[in-house]
Amino acid sequence: MSSGSGSLSRYIAIRILLVIPMMWVLLTLVFFLLRVAPGDPVSAAFGGKLSEDALDVRRHNLGIDRPLIVQYLEYLGQVAHFDFGKTISDNRPVLDLVRDNGGATLTLTLGAFLFAIVVGLPLGRLAGRYRDSWGDIVIRIFGVLTYAAPIFWVGIMLVLLVVKLFPSWPTSGMASPITIFTVQPKTHILLLDAIFSGDGTAISDVLKHHVLPCFTLGLLLSGVIIRLVRVNVIQAMKGDYVEAARARGISERAVVRRHAFRNALVAVVTVIGLQVAATLAGAILTERTFNWPGLGTQLVKYILARDYIAVQGLVTFFALIVVLTSVTVDIINGLIDPRVRY
């Protein structure tokens, strides 16, 4: 269909291959950063309770007294076989951790993204098109406030408000105990499991629990997207091709939609991709605020325990998501913009 489709598939293949070196760099960074940080899992767990000699024995059993480079190579070898090891503090395979808690983080962040995009794209476009109008000013203030407000505070305020107005609305956790008990875990993504069970009350219960956390996290993101879309629409409206389109009598609506907005999207998609890292950070805070059983909650727990293996595994998993998004963004950009080809 496309005259450049041959080079497009090549471009996509290269992007996907690039995941490997990117992940390697990230793995290495995570590995060494954790090791240079003060404290180790053994002293965090048993410090003061056991003698220095007993601690050393435990360190030796864990293998963390060996030279760093040996541990590093061993770790790389394990990762190459998709083995992320077991946590030190409670001896669970890291992959189980990701499987059991990843779904909650996934639906939280996806929900937040969805909200942010549905709200942010049209508002940003409106503000950009009617620049300096009243609407633009209101939208801009909204954008700055949502971006600047601390997530904890927004979450707590929302909870207080909701408790006051709709006392029965859930403000904590991902589902009521009864739902968790009745829904069969198949995919380990509670929302999907509830949908597969076909149980209407369970679905609505899970969805209701998602609303506040997704809204809180999404609000933060939507501020970023609004500002981004606005600036890029304004920039694109100054484009020579926009003026040329007007000179051909193309209606202003079509000029904004087909010319300015589409070109603005190229930049927006890239930056939205970069926002994934920030969103994951925000997700950790959101999970804490709403008692959400996701990876962020787990991560905080294992950091406090100085559990190298667990933190390393979880952070690697987060990094993998960031890298995969960045590849997806590159591919989307390649699809939107015919100039992006190798």
Partner: peptide, 24 residues
């Protein structure tokens, strides 16, 4: 006036490189 542009009144610009929408 807008409706006349393109149909009755045309314009050719100086910079041909940037006058076409790169995505279309």
């Amino acid at each position: 006036q807008h409706a006349m542009r393109g149909r009755d009144l045309g314009m050719i610009f100086q910079e041909p490189l940037t006058r076409l929408n790169p995505l279309m």
